[in-house]
């Protein structure tokens, strides 16, 4: 099953190992920042949006470096990332709808 076609892999950079560790420290840093902010900031919508933003940043690093997306041909990221717009649409609408449910209850 596993014979690859004549694929010219877009080679990862030579210092891949260093990149991996760098990414690890970045992810760890963001997680610590998350926890720090959790205790520092007051609970409100702005804080939630900040957390989601930080989550997306972390996702970018995991997908980009760990899952090798940064080094693939540009069409693959388009193929995989574009449909996520639908999820954002669904989540936005459902949060509005959830709020409406609490309003009519």
């Amino acid at each position: 099953m596993e014979h690859t076609e004549h694929l010219e892999h877009t080679e990862p950079p030579k210092d891949m190992k260093a990149q991996i560790w760098k990414t690890f420290w970045i992810l760890l840093g963001f997680t610590i920042v998350d926890i720090g902010l959790y205790f520092i900031l007051p609970s409100n919508m702005g804080k939630n949006i900040l957390f989601i933003f930080l989550g997306v940043v972390k996702a970018y690093f995991i997908v980009g470096v760990f899952m090798h997306m940064k080094f693939e041909r540009k069409w693959l990221p388009y193929l995989i990332v574009t449909p996520m717009v639908l999820v954002i649409y669904l989540i936005t609408l459902m949060i509005i709808e959830g709020g409406y449910t609490s309003f009519v209850r």
Partner: peptide, 13 residues
């Protein structure tokens, strides 16, 4: 990739 079969060419399966 094994090419022993006549019709096993450029597509891997």
């Amino acid at each position: 990739m094994s090419n022993q079969h006549s019709h096993n060419d450029d597509h891997g399966h």
